[in-house]
């Protein structure tokens, strides 16, 4: 659900990065934070455990510039990926306008990817959204590691909707901005359609 303020001529949209534990959701946001002009971003907030695992969410507000005289702001959130934080994940999906699913390309995380994707479907449904229609982009992260699943196999397992998908190495920024741009586009297109989340 985006928030449109005609008085201050602003439009705010919410994007959630979802995916299994340690797939690189926080790393995506950290890279965006690092590489964005300080005027275009706010403070990044990470509610994490002492061992730097996401406990509740990370939050990064970004301003993308004007569109038809309206300032466009995107609020990026990550969810905690670890299975037992499901209650928190549900809360963060409230009011979401677009989802980035970050998959871990390593063979041993394939099951975790599929489980997380199904979990996303369920949690979206509980909030009244449909994973088959919501703006969605998939990112296949950790492509630099030796034991990765082939792109064909990943696409077949996760990208049933044939949404935009990107290969990424998040700590180095490979694919990070491509992913963000793609989801921001889809959210704005949805807004144009007027169905608005």
């Amino acid at each position: 659900m985006s928030f449109i303020n005609y008085s201050s001529r602003e439009i705010n949209c919410k994007i959630v990065y979802y995916g299994p534990g340690l797939c690189g959701k926080t790393t995506n946001l950290q890279f965006i934070y690092k590489k964005t002009n300080p005027q275009a971003r706010g403070k990044m907030i990470s509610l994490a455990t002492e061992t730097d695992r996401t406990l509740f969410f990370d939050f990064l507000p970004l301003s993308l510039g004007d569109i038809r005289g309206f300032k466009t702001r995107f609020h990026l959130y990550t969810v905690p990926g670890q299975v037992f934080y499901d209650a928190s994940r549900k809360l963060i999906l409230k009011g979401v306008d677009g989802v980035v699913f970050v998959a871990d390309s390593q063979v041993e995380r394939m099951e975790a990817n599929i489980e997380s994707f199904e979990n996303l479907r369920q949690n979206l449904a509980e909030q009244g959204y449909d994973l088959d229609t919501i703006p969605l982009v998939i990112q296949y992260n950790k492509r630099d590691l030796p034991n990765v699943v082939s792109m064909e196999e990943l696409q077949k397992a996760l990208n049933i909707r044939n949404v935009p998908a990107f290969e990424a190495v998040a700590p180095e920024g490979v694919g990070v901005f491509e992913t963000l741009k793609a989801i921001a586009k889809l959210v704005l297109i949805e807004l144009r359609k007027g169905t608005g989340g």
Binding site: M1, S2, F3, I4, N5, Y6, S7, G128, G196, G197
Partner: peptide, 13 residues
């Protein structure tokens, strides 16, 4: 699911 929250000048004020 609620629609977008839209605030026009009048209500915003």
């Amino acid at each position: 699911m609620r629609p977008n929250l839209v605030l026009y000048e009048e209500e915003f004020n």
